[in-house]
């Protein structure tokens, strides 16, 4: 494992901890899209099915369990916690997940590297992760006064995928036969979706203003 990959995973982990911190500290999930959280849970669920079939490393297993556990606990808080669930902006969180789930499923069936159930579900999770942030970005655009923790959560999520690109470049240069164009294209698209957000995030930071998306 290289430094970029470790930094990427840690950034991903920190982003989730920031979201959990927001929920615990403010007893609110205002500005957080439940649709995006549902999609991430689906992504982790399908991608980590190999927990039962393939052992890679202790680090790998522990991280997978942590990502699964935290994503489902976030959903639990947003749906069922008696205080937190009342702060969910249901009326604003209107993105139709079906419009990204179905195309990703079709794409995974058509374009994959191996015709097996596990591999197709894994490929589906790669495609779905690339676009799972869309409901969150739409909700942010509709949210007035995005709080710091929510802004930082999305910023860390974007940074995580950006760091993965550096990891892929590093692996491409150092490992023979490392050719992962499905993952690369999806990852570049995923990072690209954050470009607009990054622009306004840095603008707000530079001008010492509260973040808001036009």
């Amino acid at each position: 494992m290289n430094i970029f990959r470790l930094a990427a995973d840690m950034t991903h982990l920190i982003s989730i901890l920031v979201l959990l911190l927001k929920i615990h500290a403010t007893r609110s999930c205002r500005g957080i899209s439940l649709k995006t959280q549902d999609l991430y849970a689906l992504v982790f669920l399908f991608r980590y099915l190999d927990l039962f079939t393939r052992y890679i490393s202790l680090y790998n297993t522990v991280m997978k369990l942590v990502f699964l556990g935290t994503s489902f606990s976030i959903i639990y808080f947003m749906r069922f916690h008696r205080v937190v669930r009342n702060t969910y902006d249901k009326e604003q969180d209107t993105f139709r997940s079906i419009f990204i789930v179905v195309p990703c499923a079709v794409l995974a069936l058509l374009i994959n590297q191996e015709r097996s159930v596990l591999e197709i579900l894994w490929t589906f999770s790669i495609y779905l992760e690339a676009v799972a942030i869309l409901p969150q970005l739409v909700l942010l655009q509709r949210t007035q006064n995005i709080d710091n923790l929510t802004g930082n959560y999305v910023f860390l999520l974007g940074t995580y995928r950006g760091l993965y690109i550096l990891n892929w470049i590093y692996r491409y240069l150092t490992e023979p036969h490392y050719r992962q164009w499905i993952v690369w294209l999806s990852g570049v698209l995923q990072t690209g979706l954050y470009v607009d957000f990054f622009y306004y995030y840095f603008l707000a930071w530079r001008n010492n203003q509260k973040l808001s998306l036009p």
């Binding site: 890679i56 490393s57 590297q113 990891n167 036969h177 992962q180």
Partner: peptide, 10 residues
Amino acid sequence: EQAVRAHDEL
């Protein structure tokens, strides 16, 4: 082997 390589990432 290629599939295994992709699967070692999170």
